[in-house]
Simulated scan of single mutants.
Amino acid sequence: MKIYDITQELFTSVVYPGDVPPTFIRKLNMKEGAPCNVTVLNMCAHNGTHIDAPYHFYEGARSIEQLDLTKCIGNCSVVQFEKQPDVEQMEQVLQKCEKRLLLKGNVVVTIELAKLMNEYNLELIGIEGQSVGPAEAPREVHLELLGKEVVVLEGVRLNEVEEGNYFLSAAPVKLGGSDGAPCRAVLIEF
């Protein structure tokens, strides 16, 4: 069995423009005579590799701890694109991929692609970028996907992963009432 850690290290991770970068302080430090080390975190729920909950863009929708974890854990497909895919290219992928799909490469999910993904009832879409939609206007794509309760996994790192099918584990941290949460995303080769 081979396990691929596709998670960014949190404190050196890419941060979405405008978000506060994650930091920590060592509240207790053994080097200073404390009996143990204790770390206090300060971060945005959308730092590093993370999952968006529908509540991120819909008031009153499911928050992160209410997500169906079966959408975050299970068989998935990794598909690489050398350039931005069009609707026809994505449809060819959707006709044969698993219900959890990770897009490798500099891919942005456009509104057309998001609508197509919903036609194929994807459970999870993962991308390497920090936002699933276009940087200049991510709202519409988020609304389309999260409105159908598609799990949005952002900020994965797939450079060491080949195209193919894997087992994905990307359960979010259980942050009650939160619009998103970091996760430790791994792929298992089977």
Rank of each mutant, 00 (worst) to 15 (best):
S178A: 15
K96S: 11
A34I: 01
E163V: 02
A170M: 07
D86V: 09
Y55Q: 13
R62P: 05
N121Y: 11
L101N: 09
K115T: 09
E154R: 14
I125A: 02
V38H: 13
V173K: 10
S169T: 07
A45E: 10
L94C: 02
G33L: 00
F190M: 14
A170D: 07
K83V: 10
S131E: 10
T39M: 14
V14S: 11
K148R: 12
P17F: 11
K2F: 05
L94H: 03
A34L: 05
K27E: 15
P35Q: 07
L41F: 15
Q95G: 00
L28F: 11
N118H: 00
Q8N: 11
K174G: 00
C76H: 03
V93G: 11
V78H: 02
I188K: 10
K115D: 12
Q8E: 15
I125N: 00
V132A: 07
G147M: 06
L187D: 05
L168N: 05
F24P: 02
N47W: 12
A53S: 15
E149C: 03
I127D: 00
F190I: 14
T39K: 15
G180S: 13
C44L: 09
G164F: 10
K99M: 08
V150T: 14
L146F: 06
P22S: 06
E123P: 01
E154P: 01
Y166S: 04
N165H: 13
K96E: 08
Q66M: 12
V152A: 04
E9Y: 12
V14K: 14
V38F: 12
I127W: 02
F24Q: 07
K115P: 07
D68T: 12
L153I: 14
L113Q: 03
V152P: 01
C183T: 14
E149P: 06
L67Q: 08
K27L: 15
A34E: 03
G133H: 02
A45S: 14
E112V: 04
K27F: 14
I125H: 03
D19T: 07
L158C: 01
E140K: 02
V78I: 02
Q95E: 07
K2W: 04
L28D: 13
I25F: 09
E59L: 13
I3S: 12
E65W: 09
S178C: 14
E88R: 12
F167A: 13
D19Q: 14
Q92W: 00
A34H: 06
R139I: 00
P85A: 04
Q95D: 03
L187K: 05
S63L: 04
L41M: 15
R157S: 10
N37V: 06
Y55S: 15
V78M: 01
L10Q: 13
E189S: 12
N37T: 09
A170I: 09
N159M: 11
K174V: 08
E149I: 00
G180W: 01
V14A: 11
L146M: 14
C72T: 14
A181Y: 09
L94P: 01
N29V: 01
V156A: 03
K148F: 07
A61H: 01
A170S: 11
I25H: 10
P35C: 08
Q92S: 10
T7H: 08
N29H: 05
E88K: 12
G105A: 07
D52T: 00
V173I: 13
P21T: 13
Q130Y: 08
L187M: 04
